[in-house]
Write a protein that binds this DNA or RNA. Structure first.
Lengths: 134, 134
DNA sequence: ATGTGTGCAAAGCTTTTGCATCATC
DNA sequence: GATGATGCAAAAGCTTTGCACACAT
């Protein structure tokens, strides 16, 4: 009993929308982005597919920020900065955690560390420029 | 107009419950923990106070894990490991990010990095021992 | 006394899910 | 023709909130 996957246009469109942006969108953002082109798109479908992508490794979740789950179509490990002012999530390169460190941690703690994610908090470049620092 | 804070017993109990555990509880866990001693405790009160503690810096949020927000009464910066099997959140010492690194990142990206949090995924020590590794 | 904290319960919100229908293989 | 995918809408579930009352100062 092989499991066949039907590659629907909408699924592909959702994946492309996700991979075509670096804004780490919410399900609703993807929905709004695709709705004009696919008027009969359903929000449930967006949720179903995003979840599917995360499980299959084609995408990942950045976590729940301000009540909304944020997704990331970039599979390469990298850090994120969450702007406390505008809520933007921006990629940050120069990940300072190595697999070596993870191995050390595993040995020290008795846990089995499989992956690490770094989340920074602060102000994004745009908000820094605005100078509206609270 | 100074703002007076009334230190109610329940508020103190909630804070103590949070600081007295390392399990990074949910609001519901705290509620269940205190309910026997405070039969008229309300879940809303737990939520209100946890939120308050986070805003005042007496506690922090570890984020939303499996649909529940997890809280941490330990103000010292440290990493967390989320067990993908049992959902436990355990503290991990030996934080490999320095303020120096954060400064570098700020300069490189134009952002203003204010704090960093590291979240590891894998198996907690207990689940490693059980050997039920999927 | 005054103003804050709480209980209760309803509302709010994102996300999930069931089922009939449609698309893909 | 089968089987997987989707639309629609209801359900689920955590969290928030309004209001009247109780408590701390």
């Amino acid at each position: 009993m092989e499991r066949k996957e039907h590659f629907s246009r909408k699924r592909l469109a959702i994946l492309e929308a996700l991979k075509g942006t670096t804004c780490h969108p919410t399900a609703d953002w993807v929905y709004g982005q695709l709705k004009p082109q696919y008027p009969d798109l359903s929000l449930g479908t967006v949720y179903r597919n995003l979840k599917r992508f995360c499980e299959s490794g084609q995408a990942m979740s950045v976590g729940v920020i301000a009540g909304y789950e944020r997704f990331d179509g970039n599979p390469a490990p990298h850090a994120h900065l969450v702007c406390r002012q505008c809520g933007a999530v921006v990629d940050v390169c120069g990940l300072p955690i190595s697999m070596e460190e993870l191995g050390k941690l595993s040995a020290m703690t008795g846990c089995q560390v499989e992956s690490a994610s770094i989340t920074l908090k602060g102000l994004c470049a745009a908000c820094v420029k605005d100078g509206k620092t609270a």
